[in-house]
């Protein structure tokens, strides 16, 4: 069935079966592959995206459920060539190695900026613990998030 999604500010019309997850619709049909599939069960966080500005797991949402909603993927985060401060901070602090969990980490981290997360590193660790990084880049991730928070970015 046809469904029109608003992805990164643009309408995208896809022809999907009702059982198609948003994650597979993004990756296989819209060819927006920044959003990663790690577990397909809501356990790893690699598919974290924003729906109306809040972080959600694309593998646990059916594509047809999201008509009229504002979907943001990592592809929609940078302003043209200018990286979002969180993207730049991840590079600076080496908040990744293989890069596969990174889109989910960054989308979680950006959403966290608007969440009632405490100030400490421990608070950030807790708020970021839904995103697994098997390369173990956690210290760099925390440093990146804290740098952006302290700079007051949103």
């Amino acid at each position: 069935m046809p469904v029109t999604l608003r992805i990164n500010g643009r309408p995208v019309t896809l022809d999907v079966e009702p059982r198609v997850t948003l994650l597979d619709a993004l990756r296989e049909q819209a060819l927006l592959t920044a959003t990663k599939k790690g577990c397909d069960h809501g356990q790893c966080g690699a598919c974290t995206i924003h729906v109306d500005g809040r972080r959600q797991l694309a593998c646990l949402i059916l594509a047809v459920m999201l008509a009229e909603r504002e979907i943001t993927t990592l592809e929609g985060l940078a302003a043209g060539d200018e990286l979002h401060p969180m993207q730049a901070a991840f590079i600076e602090h080496d908040g990744f190695q293989c890069g596969y969990c990174t889109p989910g980490q960054i989308m979680s981290a950006v959403a966290l900026l608007n969440e009632p997360c405490g100030d400490s590193d421990d608070d950030v660790k807790e708020c970021m613990s839904g995103n697994l990084c098997r390369c173990g880049a956690y210290p760099g991730i925390v440093a990146a998030v804290q740098q952006v928070r302290r700079a007051g970015a949103r």
């Binding site: 990756r27 060819l31 927006l32 592959t33 920044a34 959003t35 990663k36 599939k37 993927t73 990592l74 592809e75 985060l77 940078a78 990286l83 993207q87 730049a88 991840f90 590079i91 600076e92 080496d94 990744f96 890069g99 596969y100 990174t102 889109p103 960054i106």
Partner: peptide, 21 residues
Amino acid sequence: MSRVDGRLKVTGAARYTAEIP
């Protein structure tokens, strides 16, 4: 030095195997 492929990875432009069109 920061990773030369860092930008590709933080923007989602790095294409992993299953993502090759």
